[in-house]
Design a protein around this nucleic acid. Structure first.
Lengths: 188, 188
DNA sequence: TTGATTATACTCAAATTTGAGTAGGGTGAC
DNA sequence: GTCACCCTACTCAAATTTGAGTATAATCAA
């Protein structure tokens, strides 16, 4: 499970409390690559603590706020981290893409509605591309190279998606969605 | 939830039993775009049936095999299908990529191990690219255009991933993973 | 100044997913 | 001919995820 990897990886940099982990993830837009849900995060942290992969360093109590429990990674946790990384590289799991699936099945419904929403989605997608590029540029001088690769990779994938959406849009607008037999005439 | 969309979409083509849905999904490599787990599929089918979005048409019993329940989509189900498609196009959710995350954090571990596994992964990724292209080509004459877009899109994404992996590999092999401050010198 | 939103920090019940199990039949290799 | 493995079709308990809720403080505008 991906969130465990992130928890261990960030604790390898410095001790943190769970909420702080969410902040760092957002700062580096890691929440675009690994799903971040508070409930799952706290569950995973508890799990890791029960198994002695991480341990509480300090509990900060204030009368008015919830307690903050700061965690550190243990040696057992470091071993798990390595194992999970290697496992993930080895395993060949596809990347799921619900938007593509929805659009692939969209020929069953009213094409004018699809066309309309697709226009908005393309605009949103363009925005995402710019955002991703900006994040990449802003981090050039401040993150390790592998993290920079991550950011550039996100930019590339968002660009791939945008181009796909635009091609699809042409077809929807031309009401060709139900055609069978003609290859997509692709240049790229 | 993505699997519901697929169930409804396939039942829109013809009546099927759940196991048949898994076969069709694999045939069209839809299982590369939407996670397919038997348990989740049967759960979703039960759910849809309870809510009258689909209904049992026929139950085939043989003494030796488990019963097959064939389902059809209802009008209520058709409405849900449209709603889910439009919702999915509207919503802007990122695509999660655990492999990228693992590699982005891999600078904390032994680089020679990463290098080795990365070589295998690149070979596997090349294989996936070829496979995806082949699936696209083979389906040109037999699926609606929007489904063809899906297949071509998968090919493109796998190619984007392959190029990313190769660039990363160069850096790992050159032991540059921890460098900070140099932009990736990119041509594409 | 009151109301609205955002940030801090979690918690919990209910929904869903996972992973393993069940069980008979077919198929290919040795 | 038998052993191992895949195919057909699901089922189920346990693990995990989800989505909403909790509660306080700070910030900002109208």
């Amino acid at each position: 499970m991906s969130i465990k990897l992130v928890i261990l990886g960030l604790l390898l940099e410095r001790d943190m409390h769970p909420y702080e982990i969410t902040l760092v993830m957002k700062e580096r837009s890691m929440d675009q690559i690994t799903k971040l849900q508070m409930g799952s995060l706290y569950y995973a942290v508890d799990k890791l603590a029960q198994e002695d992969h991480i341990e509480a360093v300090e509990i900060i109590r204030s009368s008015d706020r919830p307690d903050k429990t700061i965690y550190r990674i243990t040696d057992k946790g470091k071993a798990l981290f390595e194992q999970l990384i290697l496992q993930q590289i080895k395993k060949n799991e596809p990347i799921y893409h619900p938007l593509y699936m929805a659009l692939a099945m969209s020929h069953h419904i009213d094409q004018s509605k699809v066309e309309k929403l697709l226009e908005e989605r393309i605009r949103e997608s363009e925005h995402q591309v710019n955002l991703a590029y900006q994040v990449y540029e802003e981090h050039i001088s401040i993150v390790p190279r592998s993290v920079l690769h991550l950011m550039y990779g996100r930019y590339e994938h968002s660009l791939t998606e945008l181009r796909w959406l635009k091609r699809l849009y042409e077809d929807v607008a031309a009401r060709k969605q139900s055609d069978i037999g003609t290859p997509l005439h692709l240049e790229a």
